[in-house]
Simulated scan of single mutants.
Amino acid sequence: MGPLPRPTDEFIQRDTGLHAPALTPGYKTSVLRSPRLALIAIEQTLSEITAPAFRPEELGPLDHDLILNFAKDGGLPIGERIIVHGIVRDELGRPVPNALVEIWQANAGGRYRHRNDKYLAPIDPNFGGCGRRLTDANGYYVFRTIKPGPYPWRNRINDWRPSHIHFSLMGDGWAQRLITQMYFEGDPLIPDCPIVRTIPSEEQVRGLIAVQDRAAFVPLDSRAYRFDITLRGRRATLFENHVQGASA
């Protein structure tokens, strides 16, 4: 088996060709906030190969349960109850333990609990729309939540965002930092979304779509969706004919 990566190892160079370009006029807000000059590549230093370390006791017992963590006086949020779970790995297939996974989302009506969200859907008094947890030793995470609703947005006059959950991940180095969105299998709004349409390939779009996982359903309670996430990996010497992360 190849050697495990060390905390001082650098991370693999990011392939910018796999990511959506910063400037995509069909996604109108990218016009004002995208860089106009070529990005500068810098050597990785201690600032890039390290990151804050989190302890389980720093998180609350209900931080990962969006059905209960904002509920008031025995009430529960309105909407379809779901489980979202998966494994966080690096690009060489190795699990990333103790990664901080944070999520935020709209409620079942498609409205965020945010002062700038003026959509006509009502605020749910029992739903805060955010949660967090750490991955376990195998890189596994799980959340319980309400399936978010789609909502209109002022990109073009009749553009709608598909149902989605925002993810923020912090691994063991700043170079692994990832902010992304998860969509739901079968949503007809996905192909027409101007943000999704900036993604270079169909394969990459599929990587952002959670698939229904019937084996993880909670009977008479919740459906489940599986969403695995890949972060950048640390460089390590690879043994020929061996997949990193596999058993010897």
Rank of each mutant, 00 (worst) to 15 (best):
P3M: 05
P3S: 12
P3D: 11
L4F: 09
L4Q: 15
E10S: 12
I12N: 07
D15R: 06
L18Y: 03
H19I: 11
H19T: 08
L23I: 05
G26I: 05
S30N: 02
L32H: 09
S34Y: 00
S34W: 05
S34A: 14
S34T: 05
I42G: 00
T45Q: 04
T45D: 03
S47R: 13
P52N: 07
A53M: 10
F54L: 12
P56M: 11
G60N: 02
L62V: 01
D65N: 15
L66I: 03
I67A: 01
F70M: 02
K72R: 14
K72Y: 02
D73W: 01
G74I: 09
G75I: 07
L76W: 01
I78P: 00
R81W: 03
R81N: 11
G86F: 10
D90L: 10
D90T: 11
D90S: 09
L92V: 08
G93I: 08
P95D: 08
N98Q: 13
N98I: 01
L100Y: 02
V101Y: 06
V101T: 10
V101K: 07
A106N: 09
G109I: 01
Y112F: 15
N116I: 05
D117F: 03
Y119S: 13
P122W: 04
I123F: 07
D124E: 11
P125R: 03
N126H: 15
G129E: 05
C130Q: 12
R132P: 00
R132K: 15
N138M: 09
F143E: 03
T145L: 14
I146W: 06
G149R: 05
Y151R: 12
R154T: 13
I157L: 13
N158F: 15
N158H: 13
N158R: 10
D159F: 05
S163C: 14
S163H: 04
H164L: 12
F167P: 02
L169S: 06
D172T: 12
W174N: 14
A175L: 04
A175R: 09
Q176E: 11
R177Q: 14
R177P: 00
L178T: 08
I179C: 11
T180E: 05
Q181V: 12
Q181A: 11
M182W: 05
E185H: 08
D187H: 02
P188E: 09
L189C: 04
I190S: 04
P191T: 08
P194C: 07
I195M: 13
I195W: 09
S201E: 12
E202N: 11
E203L: 06
E203K: 10
Q204L: 15
R206A: 15
R206P: 00
I209P: 02
D213C: 06
R214W: 06
A215L: 13
F217R: 05
P219F: 01
D221R: 09
A224L: 04
R226G: 09
F227N: 00
L231E: 08
L231F: 08
R235V: 14
A236M: 15
A236R: 15
F239E: 15
V243S: 10
A246Q: 10
